[in-house]
Structure formats: C-alpha cells, structure tokens
Amino acid sequence: MRFFGRIKDIQPAGIDGVIIYFSGDTLTDKNDAVQALARGLRAQRLTWLKSLIAGYDSLLVLFDLQRADVHLVYRTLKNTQPREAGADEHSHYELPVWYGAPSANDIAVVSEKTGLSEDEVIATHLRQQYRVFTVGFSPGFAYMGETSESLSCPRLESPRKKVPAGAVAIADRQTAVYPNESPGGWNLLGLCPLPLFKADGSQPITLRAGDTVNFVQVDEATFRELADKHG
C-alpha cells in the first residue's frame, strides 16, 4: 500500500496539533488507513507524541511543543510506514446483549424502518463482527461499524432525554453501547450488562479504536446474572 497516497489532507489543529484526513472508497477503508498510521506512529515510541485521537476518517496528532514543531511532525509522517494490526495490538470483545429489554427496545421501530422482521433485525445485528472506528463523545462511547446495509436505520426524529447505561443501539450504519445514562437519538435494540464506564476509571472493558466486537444474545436471566457480577 502506497501509504502517503491515502492521506487526503493535513492541517494544523492548534499550536500543538496536526490533523490528518484520509481518503478511501468506504468508511471502513478510510478508518483502516487511520488505524494503520496510528499503529505506525505508536511503534516508533516518539518522545514528542502526546496523544493520537482517531476520528472516523481523521487522526489528530498532539505533540509536545518543547520537543517538536509541525515540520518535525510532517517529516515523521512522511517517513512512517503504516502497519497492519499485530495479533496482540487490538482486543476482541464479545458483548452480551439482552435484545428487546423493556427499557431499551426500539426493535419494532427498526423493523418498520428497515423492512426486516424483528427476528431478522436481531439476527442481522448478531451476524457481523464490528470494528471500533473511534471512541469519544463521552468516556467509553465506541462508534462501531459498519452494520449491514439492510440494517441501516436513521436516528430517531427527536432524541430521548434519557438512554439507560448499557443500551445497545444503531444509527445509520453504526452501532454502539451507551456507557452511561445520557441523552441520545439512536435506535435501541437491547441492553449489555458489562460496564463500559465507571467513575473510578476501572472499567473492565476499555474499547479502543481498532478493537473488534461481536454481540452475543443472552436471555434475561443471564443478563441479570452478568449485571450482578459486574455491577
């Protein structure tokens, strides 16, 4: 892969930041390039590198102003080989979901919007492995995709004031788990019993850009058991 060719644009992002935009045929392609460059940069253990914040199709590089300037960053980017994911670089998670949990159930709405039966909605969501494109909005909120085209589903017309913690949701061709109770406009499919955010910072699961996720269906009894164990 001629990597620098995947870079569409590089712009300053503040005094200590540079943001890189990527081209690609699909969102997954673009995000592949984001992740590959992030891995290539991390592998060099650059002393001036403060943080790499992945977006869907962009990478924000924050650097230490005492040790680097934009020219050094550009030069480094030019000489950085993208890296395919090493076996131990990203985690894979299987997230249990109680589909149709009463406090998080828009399956009928999704069925109506997509033309799939309610069972097909669940089966389609379960069938695929998803990749974490980016994490943000709030701690632990992982934007995953892409869902099957057939499950593509617009956001709710008016966002809910309260989405429960653990709600598993879809919007457009993305899926996510709400780490804590918050407002939100995504369509809810069920509840995940594993905490993705804890105020003490000790969340058992920390989703990072590049990680992969499969959803696994559980019944209410298993959900309650898991929720008790991890509460």
């Binding site: 503040g14 930041g17 943001i19 914040i53 977006g55 869907y56 199709d57 962009s58 943000g136």
Partner: peptide, 27 residues
Amino acid sequence: YSEGINCGAIQFPPDGQPIVMLADRQT
C-alpha cells in the same frame, strides 16, 4: 465525520456563531 477537537478549537454550528472549545470539551 466527527474528529478530534483540540483545546481552543473554534467551531461553527449551523447558526454561524462561533464556539471556542475549552478544558472539558468532548473529545
């Protein structure tokens, strides 16, 4: 698409009035 926001970023929502992002900005 959503992208990383550095401190001090000046963003323009559809009404065209600037918002300057500070310490507790969303990422």
